[in-house]
Design a protein around this nucleic acid. Structure first.
Length: 277
DNA sequence: GTTTAACCCTGCACGC
DNA sequence: TGCGTGCAGGGTTAAA
């Protein structure tokens, strides 16, 4: 499931491959994927003929700016990905939208579970989009300082995992990375935020930055049952470096005790009960 | 204010 | 073999 690092890897790929290119034609094969628009035409007409000027990321959203003043917003949901392909290449199953570039290449939006979506909005209206407006600072942004982090953590009485995953607090962290960050910080998912010592808070802040950067460096996580790939179809490698996520029954890489899985909310949470306190 | 559960969806694992 | 069921999860929303 694409979280900040996976989306960031894709953003960098798109920046290299798509900026400066003009969209010649768009084919929407599954209208559900543009469910925010009333008709296919409304979506297609705003995109066709536009040149891609830049690619940004806000949380898990990709923002593809067009020279028309519009922004093509992409969210990958749980199983979405974007692939660059030659038009001759056969369409993969679950290909829901195809952007044909004037340069000859295709950008294909593929999403098995259909939780992802695409929509176009004017750049000025971006803040009016509910899902984007509430997204907090990016944890890797320079402005996301230790002080900002500490203020939010101490100002709340929430369990750490839900804080980390709350997009209006920190953007871009999902189930996998929150478990990895908490393990790296040596903290349990159900610790209440305002009980942290300043030393623990520093560890959490540092762990968050390091784990996310590591994830990007290794091209993100591609699990066996998942479909995440970079723009060129290459899987990530960070799954080989995961310390707790998906490692139920295996020894903790720090203290050798057994990693356990807890059911928390609707999600699986993995932790080492020995070294996370 | 915070937590929980349901919802959207498909593929897969499992039990009968 | 084939069917039904449960699970996985991001983000939103409603209810507790």
């Amino acid at each position: 499931m694409p979280e900040l690092p996976e989306v960031e890897v894709l953003r960098r790929d798109l920046e290299r491959e798509a900026v400066g290119k003009t969209i010649r034609e768009v084919e929407v094969k599954l209208p559900r994927i543009i469910r925010r628009h009333k008709t296919k035409r409304e979506f297609v007409d705003r995109v066709v003929g536009a040149k891609i000027t830049r690619v940004d990321r806000r949380g898990k959203y990709l923002l593809v700016s067009l020279n028309s003043g519009d922004v093509l917003v992409m969210h990958l949901g749980m199983s979405g990905r974007i692939e660059r392909a030659t038009p001759r290449k056969a369409l993969e199953k679950h290909t829901h939208a195809i952007f044909r570039l004037r340069s000859g290449a295709d950008l294909r939006f593929i999403d098995m579970r259909q939780f992802g979506e695409l929509f176009v909005t004017h750049a000025d209206g971006l803040e009016g989009v509910r899902e984007l407006a509430h997204i907090a600072l990016d944890p890797l942004a320079d402005s996301f300082t230790w002080q900002v982090f500490s203020d939010i953590v101490t100002g709340r009485q929430a369990k750490l995992k839900s804080l980390l995953m709350e997009q209006k607090f920190i953007s871009g962290i999902g189930n996998i990375y929150s478990d990895e960050i908490l393990w790296a910080a040596g903290l349990r998912y159900d610790r209440v935020s305002d009980t942290l010592t300043s030393q623990e808070m520093r560890r959490l802040y540092r762990a968050m930055q390091e784990v996310l950067q590591d994830g990007i460096r290794h091209g993100g996580v591609t699990l066996d049952d998942e479909t995440y790939r970079n723009l060129h179809g290459k899987p990530g490698e960070f799954q080989q470096h995961l310390k707790v996520y998906g490692r139920e029954g295996k020894p903790c890489r720090r203290c050798r005790s057994t990693i356990v899985r807890h059911r928390w909310g609707n999600r699986s949470t993995y932790l080492c009960q020995q070294c996370q306190v």
